[in-house]
Design a binder for these strands. Structure first.
Lengths: 126, 126
DNA sequence: CGGTATCCTCATAGATACTG
DNA sequence: CAGTATCTATGAGGATACCG
């Protein structure tokens, strides 16, 4: 189906075995939730090791980071690559080509987040 | 603080009395969750009565729709206007100027949702 | 018409400890 | 190093009934 047909006919969308009635809710299934877009934004343009991600997202618990990474991987947005089989392990995460299609959206989110903070929030210099 | 300074100094962001370490998570505080962006996308460009919104988002329960509308209102993204005081009530919702700043982001989400559905999902014609 | 109130379930997320 | 296991807490969301 072409984009034009989709906007015109508004079909139901089946994704991850769930039914969505609009593209917005289908998108939120993949990148919604509290942390997914945060993790994805850290992988924009560069691969990261697990520990790098962990240090850059200190407010995400280890367990949650692990679960979200698995979901992002099974949704085809990121790729996990293990370089070693025995400890010390070396695992890197990066965006898949499908995940790369998110980059403009992620940038838009970041930019709007800055504007929202300027409008409604305050900044705290550490 | 200017955008450039924010990107450079990465300050903490205080919003709704919570602390965020990046603009992405601050943005998700306001438009994340399962339904907020869906509701906002239905208000793009036009005001809607409560019942119109309800019919256009049949998968959102009444209770949830009500709660989300209140949150969006208290976050300054939408405006509620009551035209009558006694039943039959007439209430309309529309984006505030701050909410309007979300339109480009909402359009990007919708577009990416369509692409994701084309890539990973399937369409069901009713 | 435009909601609330009540009660409920389940997914999401956190803390801490442990492991190949 | 890169995770799991376990246990717990929170809150998002649903069903149904009711209200001004």
């Amino acid at each position: 189906m072409t984009k034009e047909e989709i906007f015109e006919k508004k079909p139901l969308i089946k994704l991850n075995n769930k039914i969505f009635t609009c593209p917005t809710s289908a998108a939120m299934e993949l990148i919604g939730g509290k942390w997914k877009s945060v993790i994805l934004s850290h992988l924009m343009g560069e691969k990261k090791r697990y520990n790098e991600l962990r240090k850059e997202t200190p407010m995400i618990s280890e367990r949650t980071l692990s679960i979200q990474l698995k979901q992002l991987e099974s949704d085809g947005l990121i790729k996990r690559k293990a370089y070693t089989k025995k400890p010390p392990l070396r695992v890197e995460y990066c965006l898949t080509p499908f995940g790369e299609t998110l980059v403009p959206l992620l940038k838009t989110i970041i930019n709007w987040g800055v504007e929202a903070a300027q409008e409604k929030g305050e900044f705290i210099i550490e």
